[in-house]
Amino acid sequence: MADSTTTTQHAFAGWDKPELDLSEADWRSSSQGAGDVQIAFVEGFIAMRNGGRPEAPSLIFSPAEWRAFVVNAREGEFDLT
């Protein structure tokens, strides 16, 4: 496995997230249901995954990206209505 602070190359333009070691992450859940969203704070970043499929890739957010996501979610940006 690559060093946890190594920046990896991805197909996405502008991708500058490090490859984080999430094997020891303290995942926190907002609910008890299967498939719920879990987050973990790792090396100054926020990782988010599907609790029902923890083996699937996790999304990695910088603190600024996480704040923007939370603020927009609270304001209803992602509501289906």
Results as ranks from 00 to 15, higher is better:
M1Y: 11
A2H: 08
D3E: 15
T5I: 09
T6V: 11
T8C: 14
T8R: 15
T8E: 11
Q9I: 15
H10D: 11
A11F: 15
A13F: 12
G14E: 11
G14Q: 07
E19C: 13
L20R: 04
E24A: 14
A25Y: 03
D26P: 00
W27N: 05
S29C: 05
Q32Y: 13
G33P: 00
A34L: 10
A34Q: 08
V37M: 03
Q38A: 06
Q38R: 09
I39E: 01
I39G: 00
I39W: 07
F41W: 10
V42I: 02
E43P: 01
E43Y: 06
F45I: 02
I46N: 00
A47T: 00
M48W: 07
M48P: 03
N50G: 02
R53K: 13
R53W: 09
R53T: 06
E55C: 05
P57A: 13
S58L: 00
S58Q: 05
S58W: 00
L59P: 06
L59T: 00
I60K: 11
I60C: 06
F61E: 01
F61Q: 00
A64D: 06
W66D: 03
R67N: 11
R67G: 11
V70L: 12
V71W: 09
N72Q: 08
A73K: 10
A73P: 08
G76C: 06
L80R: 14
T81V: 13
T81G: 06
